[in-house]
Amino acid sequence: MNAAIQPHILVIDDEPQILRALRTVLTAKRFRVSTASRGEEGLSLAAAQPPDLIILDLSLPDMDGIEVCRQLRTWSQVPIIVLSVRDREHDKVEALDHGADDYLTKPFGIEELLARIRVALRHSIQTQTADGKKTVIRTGSLEIDLMQHLVTRAGEEVKLTATEFKLLAYLAANAGRVLTHQMILSNVWDPVDVDRVEYLRVYIRLLRRKLEDDPEKPHFLVNEPGIGYRFLIE
């Protein structure tokens, strides 16, 4: 593996020890790592050398991590994984609503972080092909054609209602990202319906019945308790 195709990860965290540990581990895992200990520094590094992924702490000395997220999202679609000691649902939802792709609370196991990094990078690579306008998403036996509004499972067409398809298409187009209930409801239904989580529960159950091998143990439509859902690509 040469340096050119090593994924570049930018870690923004103000704790020198965690920066040191992450740099060591990620370098050992053959990632190219740069680090920043302040929000402004992180933003300018991300602009100067666009990374493939950003790991972001929410407690920064100069600005809040949420603000870093918001500013990054104004010009970049780079996957952002938030790492924070803040473990309330409210904090997670806020970060995700402001453009973070994933959220991991400290302390965390390195394997879990690596898994999340892999998911985020895969999603990012998939969306980058065809100018970020990928029209067919494949995972396992599932194939979703966003243009043709066609979903096949092991080669057989799956009949979906208009709302079911809209929901699936939205989740699949953001594969790998954690989407909050509010984001899904306002995009698939209507911004006035952001509190009708029950709609979402019903339709997710319908989709799982039609798409998953075992609707009780979903592979594609994964629940993020209290936060939202995530479409996983195998």
Partner: peptide, 14 residues
């Protein structure tokens, strides 16, 4: 407490 614990856990799991 979680901040140093995060470093310790990340390092130990690695």
């Amino acid at each position: 407490f979680r901040t140093p614990l995060a470093t310790i856990k990340a390092s130990v799991t690695a």
